[in-house]
Design a protein around this nucleic acid. Structure first.
Lengths: 225, 225
DNA sequence: TATTCCAATATAAATATTTTATAAAAATTT
DNA sequence: AAATTTTTATAAAATATTTATATTGGAATA
């Protein structure tokens, strides 16, 4: 029994109907909005477990809705997009979307993606702490422990670790990390990142010549495990 | 029971007859056109599941027909060509043809290619993940797994694999691949491609002396299965 | 049919280039 | 002044390109 609530924001009634049938038959409770404004109101009144958002709304409001949602909503937002609209997808992911699906999609994959998103979000946002192997992060107290011992981190180091931990298993590009931690205009300062990844590794890796947590993806970015 | 419709566009009546007999005995419904104009009309009136197009028509109209078709038709177009007309084949593939067969062809091969093309066109939803046999690509996480294990790819290798995976089953010419991965001006550097196909095969093929995923189409390019 | 030859492809290895890691100095913030 | 961040410099590692050589498969020849 799930009964987790899912909000669908899409202007196409057929898509909403299709989603509704599939989701309800899998024990999700479905709420629907046919435009961005309505979606924002519904989400605010009764925050759902997952939001499915059509990014390619005719009035281009999908991107704005995503940004507005992300100002306060930190559960999964899965983007729905028509095929061949890669630009939309990439910009959505950079703006905090959790995942995406292109229409037409297979039901099996949709359900799998929803399950995976919920699982991940329960590991992170819901709880006030994350445990990744020997690393333990307490968001409320802003404390990080390694094998039970408190690790002293500077605020940049801490922010970086949080960003990694919230995106466990995902490759984060240099650009993305720099934008998230330092803000726009810093996206080319890759050296900052190297320095801080270095200090973080020294503090959280067992053997920092052979990092097990922060993995380098040469030419691309880093991945946290 | 298939009853998928196949449109043949070829000026040689013997070839049309031969194809018709073979295809109908395999439960396909066959429509025929003896020239490009007729073919375009038939295709527009009743879009078939696959089009077999003779590219080497005497008046060279095959190429034009292909281009016109590709403006709206996105199902498989398999090129028929006389042997030794590699230029024709390559230009057709670069213009969006799915596959090719050289006359005279073996019936078994023809049928296999048609089946494969149909299968592919039915699941081309380019989604946030692709599964091809034991290979699994997650675009969001930017991670490739083989039998569940993460495969470490360099960024060029990854880009190449993505290009292949997004065009599964389709023959990609050297030129096309080089243009997509390295950009204009690199279209003659076929050796780059060989080196990278080599390293990719080592990483994703079970037995890389007998590649099952990246298939060589000698003189033309590669195909991903 | 078997053999030779050729062009295309594959592989290995050397070199060049780019990217990353690290230390440490300088600047800034607390 | 201490802690932290930014900048600079340099070493090390990873990746890409180039070169050399081997292998393969098809066409031509005997």
């Amino acid at each position: 029994m799930n009964k987790a609530e899912i909000l669908i924001i899409d202007d196409e009634p057929q898509i909403r109907k299709l989603l509704q049938i599939n989701l309800e038959s899998n024990d999700y409770k479905v709420i629907q909005a046919s435009n961005g404004k309505e979606g924002l109101i519904l989400a605010a009144n009764h925050p759902p477990e997952v939001i499915l958002l059509d990014i390619g709304l005719p009035d281009k409001s999908g991107h704005e809705v995503l940004k507005e949602l992300r100002e306060w909503y930190n559960k999964p937002i899965i983007i729905l997009s028509v095929q061949d609209n890669e630009t939309d997808i990439i910009s959505a992911l950079d703006n905090g979307a959790t995942d995406y699906l292109t229409k037409p999609f297979r039901t099996g994959e949709l359900l799998a993606r929803i399950r995976s998103a919920i699982r991940r979000s329960q590991n992170t946002t819901n709880n006030s702490s994350i445990v990744c192997g020997d690393i333990e992060i307490d968001f409320v107290a802003r404390i990080v422990k390694r094998k039970g011992e408190i690790v002293k981190l500077t605020s940049t180091e801490y922010n970086l670790l949080i960003l990694f931990a919230k995106n466990e298993g995902k490759v984060l590009t240099h650009q993305f990390i720099l934008k998230e931690i330092w803000g726009y205009g810093y996206q080319t300062e890759t050296q900052y990142l190297r320095v801080f990844v270095g200090t973080l590794r020294k503090k959280i890796e067992e053997n920092y010549n052979n990092p097990q947590h922060i993995i380098t993806e040469s030419g691309v970015g880093y991945r946290f495990e």
